[in-house]
Design a protein around this nucleic acid. Structure first.
Lengths: 330, 330
DNA sequence: TTGTACGCGTTATCAC
DNA sequence: GTGATAACGCGTACAA
């Protein structure tokens, strides 16, 4: 059986194709009753618009390219979730382009994808605008940066300095020595991120303002084994009671594991502040910093969609603040 | 200035649009002279066909979805290179769908991408056919598995057992105790791979056949810090001369670093056999196993394209053999 | 508020 | 071999 087309829906609903199209695109000038009839028949026939036909008729691709580094992280899953939800509501497709390697960026630039496949561009974590603009011939499509800074294009990012500060301010209210663990910035082989540097700056500033010293700090790479080792080293050297700012929940989790092994009472001998609010954080009572990542993705989409809608004006910046979630561990 | 269309090319070349289309699609029935004229004008006008128009006219999406786990690895870069090159030659687009998370698979299934965006499916490393077929309503598109096994669909993969065996056979010819290092199989948080298990099986079989014992083995997670620690531990315990099969070049590299630090003469006191033949392997004289990953990607594309071309018949299996590259370290 | 008809840039099917 | 021309499914201006 053939896939139903807009014609089929129109015929079945006893209206013209124009009306169906208007319903699809949320045109205000459709009578409520008609709209309902059409919508009913759309679901009844299980009709889905053909995106290709739409693109050729509309002269747009209704597609957004998302360039993002390849790191399996809660962060990117949630970011994509926010982006995709918002874009899908606006009937835009999202084409993900994972940057595994510098050569892959070349491939993206070289393919004709760029020219046809994307009305807009979302770049996550890395600001590749310079790289792009020097290579791009004509297609200078609207761009928004996520989790990155720029003076030239719209961008949204998390305020990691503020997050570190929140952690520091809270830590300063707690008794005992203060420790911290950071993540090595080599997130993948090619690029680096500065988020942990920023969290550290905020944290140190807050401690300084409160007149509390940082007893010692430790660095780990971002994997569970290394996290466990770092936790072990820290607990070997620590004087109790103490409070540890683990700048990623992965590190915080390892700390909790190791503490349990040693019979330390978390929340008393050892207090832990995490960062990320991973799904498991609540059940383990982890006090941590929650980041509104989906909202950030949503906002990024809004900014881009407004540009696609013709919005002119200077680059806009949206900063998102993490929120300290107080639970049992600190 | 508007993008040139097939009409513009036809007019400029003094031919009909049909002819231009035939040239584009490599139809044999075009006179050589005409073809050349058309091709010249295509480049002159900088014409690129509109893929959306093509899709609606052709009734196909000319797009292949590639589902792959998110691991920043030489392997996937090269695999994608092989796949994309082959598909682009056949004028197919590649839509990459990184599986960051189980929820993302749901998103893929839920979107209408599946129905419209893909004529075929490539699944790398994980066999998700069961998951897909139970969810899919009608669109049962041709599928090929890469780096995974299946009895029901075409698949291509590297013979890791053979690779381990090659390493073992070579190791057995060398003097000294034999050690090995493996990688923890938790490649990412959700799925696991069995490649190291397979390499180990092959390696042990070869040693057994040669009557050589394996003195000791070590396990590391797949990151440079852990690799370095493992290398250090191994060299602490090893008796020299010895030969180490490092089942990933990352581990082999760490071993070379650590050996240099201790003043060990590689190729004499310590012999190292790696696996992967990373770009840096040649310059460091690393004896290692080279995998024809691009070829594998190319073959996967060929299998899928043949199905799209109407090929019927039982599932085909293509096994690719790694090749031992003898350099200085062993 | 709604229906009709045209156009988008291709491919495919005819005749020539 | 090659040139017209009819689809393909949708958006949209225009008329009603």
């Amino acid at each position: 059986m053939r896939k139903p087309t807009i014609q089929d829906v129109a015929r079945a609903a006893g209206v013209g194709v124009g009306t169906v199209s208007r319903v699809l695109n949320n045109h205000p000038s459709v009578k409520q009753a008609t709209r309902e009839t059409v919508l009913r028949l759309i679901t009844e026939l299980d009709y889905t618009p053909n995106p290709h036909a739409r693109r050729i008729a509309g002269g747009k691709s209704y597609t957004i390219s998302v360039l993002l580094p390849v790191v399996t992280t809660e962060f990117y899953v949630r970011l994509l979730d926010g982006l995709e939800t918002a874009f899908q509501d606006a009937r835009y497709d999202v084409a993900i382009f994972p940057l595994l390697d510098r050569s892959r960026l070349e491939r993206y630039l070289g393919s004709h994808t760029l020219a046809y496949q994307a009305d807009g561009l979302v770049m996550a974590t890395y600001n590749l605008t310079a790289l792009l603009s020097e290579r791009r011939l004509r297609t200078q499509q609207p761009t928004v940066l996520v989790d990155a800074h720029s003076d030239n294009v719209d961008c949204v990012y998390m305020d990691n300095v503020a997050g570190g500060r929140l952690a520091g301010e809270h830590a300063a209210t707690l008794p005992g020595h203060i420790y911290a663990t950071w993540v090595e910035t080599e997130l993948d082989q090619l690029f680096t991120t500065r988020v942990f540097e920023e969290r550290r700056n905020g944290f140190l500033a807050a401690l300084g303002a409160a007149g509390r010293p940082l007893k010692a700090e430790f660095t780990s790479s971002f994997d569970s084994l290394a996290a466990r080792n770092t936790a072990s080293t820290l607990l070997d050297q620590a004087e109790f009671p103490c409070v540890v700012f683990a700048s990623a929940d992965l590190l915080a989790g390892a700390l909790l594991d190791e503490a349990a092994l040693r019979g330390l009472e978390v929340g008393r001998d050892l207090r832990v502040i995490g960062y990320d609010d991973q799904p498991w954080a609540a059940s383990r009572q982890l006090t941590t910093l929650h980041q509104p990542v989906e909202s950030m993705g949503h906002e990024a989409a809004s900014l881009l969609l407004s540009r696609l809608g013709g919005h002119k004006g200077p680059p806009r910046v949206r900063k998102f603040l993490p929120r300290l979630v107080l639970r049992g561990t600190a």
